[in-house]
Design a protein around this nucleic acid. Structure first.
Lengths: 230, 230, 230, 230
DNA sequence: AATGAATGAGCCTTCATTCAT
DNA sequence: GATGAATGAAGGCTCATTCAT
């Protein structure tokens, strides 16, 4: 019933020249999609195996069990997102521009990483049980905070930022609307329509959010949004 | 072997003397907890039946199947939250106080309705498939928007609010941080510590959020937050 | 006793008129054979189900899991053997005859209860883990000891038995050779040939064992065995 | 996920610098414990490999398959026990002392060879299928019989032993209680308590068994046991 | 309106074993 | 001799669901 491999199709069960790392990546890639789509209990190991170039048995060989695979997937998406954050260089920008850039980048990063969003939602359903077990994830999260702290420090040093501005809170705030914008799109659309999710409205929304944060952080900043009707 | 499902160790429940509506409510109450705790695929009909005062058969009798039960649960939590919103009366408050009140109420409502949050997360995992099917839910969502629109209209009428202020965006914004504050607590804490979730910090956070929104909405509002170090 | 209900030898999957107790007994009957034949890990639930008039699913319905089924089987064979002991009435016999009768009955009981023997062996391999869990088994074991104590008391009262004769030790002793006679037949035969297991030699062996025990217990008893060459 | 079998968490064992015989002994040593502990079907090749200084592949290299390994283990424990019997020298003792010595030695040997006992039990569960296949084991079993026959011959020659005394039966009898004393300790204790297995009671029990056998074998021997209350 | 018994499908996992190097 | 990678088969167990009464 599963494993209809034998068709003349293109399941290339031939000729992978012993590349364990590729097999591992292949499994992880498919599993990421499946766990993101259906959650931990909803995902199906048989289905993951079917889409893979290898067999169900190999999943257990490399990842131990379903939870092990899920945890590897979780670590994978966290690592990917944090790697993107690392690539972001704002050290050369002056504080306000840097902050604006960080908020915009975070917002965009969430929009373009739906798997990450879904897996974090799923992980929260599980009360972060697997994230907590992970040894790799906690290490990944300094980078973004470090960047924000650097920007804040510079902003305060030149008297631009308010004295109480806190990098962690700023990160929380930026994350909250960036995450929600993706995570709750389905229910929000169902309840209130899809207007907010058009490309134009998303751009306007982002501008408004940036504006709002800057107004909170930067002394004397005059908010520009909402001055004119939508 | 902990007596899950139909192993032959049977029940001896006090009989509820035939009160169909009570039975229905009982099932719904237990099911809400189970679906909120484990999601749609993760929840277990046997487990729900076990905790119920009635039998598994009755669940099927009243709700058809697992998805029917889930949908009923979903409609239940939406109805409960919206009922709370209806109870909120800001018509007598002047615009700025009213807006402040609405934001604070929304924030608190999310904190005190974790089941709702979790079920909305779960429903988003399912792309709002069941919410979309519901005929009752869309009707529930006018109330909060109506209230916000009323406040905005009054605020603009007296020249306090910026002309472009939009009730729907305002609701989206308020919801985003209120929701995220609960939904992502587990993963955020794991990554960045639990500092932000102490009672004191939560209160400060809320004040800052209100401050920030008001600064965006109200002409000439001077933000007070972040002026002093945390 | 072996419930050969399936007369005419067809799998009568039709027309059992809802008799849960019969289903339970059927499963237990087949499972006893399989566990006795292959042990706990060696037995196969699918194979048990196949031989049953019902399905694998029902095994889990009635017995929870493989270990639950095994434990039920274990309790079953203990109960059967102890019931046979209960049927044995030696109260009317004078002490020496009664003791002789008890030894002979125990010896015969073991010979005719190979399933019991095998399951006890298997249970000892498992360090009596499941027997210890059983609530029913410990209660079953008074009867044989009570009988022996009664006989000993009477024997001592009339000055026939030695003062130190102990019922528990007597039971241990009787059990030891009775059990070993069946349990180790395969390896003993392989090492030393099958001579001891012919019907004639078994009868002689039993007589010798009785003779030996009586010589230990009864004052002035003159052993008759081994006086003449085998 | 506790790293059983070939999940990709690999080994880092100190290399044994190629000593094939040592590797073979190491495997056999571990396998003996595992088969004794869990039986043939219950033992796990992966688990054995894990505890070994070498890899799973080597087990197959040296022993062919699981059954081959089991058979090697079986032959090993038989050889060990028989070697101990060979070391026992009773040729210099007069017949009664020699017989007493043989019984005591057998009893003690069983107590101190629990792996042997368990493997013989397991082998009997398998109807001695593997023992029968072995070419080495049958050869090992003459020694103890030879010794007993010698003692019996000498005892009869001097008119001490009854004419019908049979070495094989004597061995069977000695083995029966010696084996049972270890093999059924778990279930017997569960049913009747552990009293009989204290050091003192074991010594008394052995003395009684010796006394009983001697009373059967030796003409005019007056049993001393059970004269006084336990 | 209610219940104990029954069920088929399929899920996660493990096992002994072999291949390619 | 030795190793990591790979595998088919099946094993125990659970799930949502329905039947018969």
């Amino acid at each position: 019933m599963d494993a209809s491999e034998g068709d003349a199709g293109h399941k290339r069960k031939t000729s992978w020249k012993k590349d364990p790392e590729a097999v591992r990546r292949d499994i992880l890639h498919i599993a990421t999609q499946e766990f993101a789509a259906h959650g931990l209990s909803g995902a199906n190991i048989n289905e993951i195996a079917r889409q893979t170039s290898t067999s169900k048995r190999m999943i257990y060989y490399y990842f131990g069990d379903k939870e092990g695979l899920y945890q590897a997937v979780l670590e994978g998406v966290y690592a990917t997102l944090r790697a993107r954050e690392d690539d972001l260089d704002v050290a050369g920008l002056e504080p306000v521009a840097a902050l604006r850039r960080l908020i915009e980048a975070t917002f965009e990063a969430h929009v373009t990483a739906p798997h990450f969003i879904r897996l974090v939602m799923i992980e929260n359903i599980h009360n972060a049980e697997y994230l907590r077990k992970s040894e790799i994830v906690p290490r990944l999260n300094r980078s973004i905070i470090d960047k924000l702290e650097d920007v804040c420090a510079r902003g305060k040093a030149v008297g631009l930022f308010r004295a109480g501005v806190d990098a962690l809170e700023l990160h929380w705030l930026t994350s909250s609307f960036s995450f929600y914008n993706v995570s709750n799109r389905a229910t929000f659309s169902t309840s209130f329509g899809t207007a907010l999710y058009s490309e134009a409205r998303q751009a306007a929304l982002l501008e408004r959010l940036v504006d709002m944060v800057l107004a909170s952080v930067v002394i004397g900043y005059e908010p520009q949004s909402w001055n004119a009707p939508v």
